[in-house]
Amino acid sequence: MKDFDKYHKWVEWSDEDQVYIGKCPDLITGIHGDDPIALYGELCDVVQDVVEHFKAEGRALPPPRVRPMSEVA
């Protein structure tokens, strides 16, 4: 499994902000946009950039902690 794939990523609607929010809390606080499909692609690009930045700096990636709800049970 690639390091990128270890981190849970999702897009959800924010009633408060009236936009979609892309989240990957193990690595970034979030990004936002109007199109959920395009936003997910952007989120994946940002997460990949963060992973590559950590590796380029010789820093260890934080452990993935956030998991999908189906794995919580």
Rank of each mutant, 00 (worst) to 15 (best):
E71C: 02
Y40K: 12
K6A: 15
E12C: 13
W13H: 08
E71W: 10
P62R: 13
K55V: 05
D26T: 09
D45P: 10
E71H: 05
V50R: 15
S14P: 08
H53D: 11
V66D: 12
K9G: 01
G33P: 13
R67L: 13
M69Q: 07
V47R: 14
S70F: 15
C24S: 09
K6I: 00
C24R: 05
D15C: 02
R59V: 00
D35V: 02
D26V: 04
Q18H: 10
A38H: 07
V51R: 12
Y40G: 00
G33I: 08
H8E: 15
E52P: 00
V72S: 05
R67D: 02
K55W: 04
L39W: 05
K6R: 15
Q48P: 00
P62W: 13
P64A: 14
V72M: 09
M69I: 13
L61S: 04
I31K: 14
G58H: 06
V46G: 04
V47Y: 11
F54H: 15
P62Y: 11
K23I: 02
S14Q: 08
V50F: 10
M1E: 07
I28V: 11
E42M: 08
K2L: 08
I31A: 12
I37L: 13
D35E: 14
E52G: 01
D5H: 10
P36W: 03
L61K: 07
A56I: 03
V50S: 09
L61F: 12
K23C: 03
A60N: 12
F4A: 01
G22C: 11
F54S: 04
W13Q: 04
I21F: 03
A38C: 00
R67F: 14
H8I: 01
K55I: 09
E12I: 08
D35G: 02
F54D: 05
I21R: 14
L27W: 09
V47K: 13
K9E: 01
E12D: 09
D49S: 15
D45G: 09
E16S: 14
V19T: 07
G22K: 00
C44S: 12
D15S: 11
D45A: 09
C24T: 05
E42S: 12
V50A: 12
P68V: 04
A38Y: 05
S70M: 09
V19C: 01
R59D: 10
V11H: 10
I31S: 11
D3N: 14
A73L: 14
P25G: 04
A73C: 06
D5M: 05
C44H: 07
K9Y: 03
P62V: 12
P36R: 01
V51E: 12
P36N: 01
P64M: 08
D15F: 07
R65I: 14
D15K: 14
D15P: 13
D26M: 09
K55M: 03
S70A: 09
P63Q: 13
H53T: 14
G58Q: 06
M69N: 05
E57R: 13
D35S: 03
C24Q: 07
P62C: 10
